[in-house]
Amino acid sequence: MAKSKPRVKAPKKASAGDVVTIKTLISHKMETGLRKDKEGKIIPRKIINKFECSFNGASVFSCDILPAVSANPYLEFTMKAVESGEYNFKWTDDDGSIYEKKSKLTVA
């Protein structure tokens, strides 16, 4: 798979005080940097090394990811819904590229 495509499942609506579950997944081969190719040369490391989710600019959840994480990293976390706003999901790749996705939440 050439391109990394982020996917997010987060509720669009919630009542104030609800704890909402957010699921994220990005397709990525997560090359560890420990494997060798047919000629015996090391395949360079290429993984998603950081994930961050912010809500209205404030960080909600973030983590560093290391080579032991398998392909297509899946992360699930919860957040207390207080106000309406917009999520911003950000994945950082070893090669410097950043994959982003946004999603809105309305708190009634």
């Binding site: 798979m1 495509k5 996917r7 997944l25």
Partner: peptide, 15 residues
């Protein structure tokens, strides 16, 4: 559909 791991390939097919 989100948890179904085959959807990664479905997305590839769509592309």
């Amino acid at each position: 559909d989100f948890e179904n791991p085959a959807y990664i390939l479905l997305d590839l097919g769509a592309e």
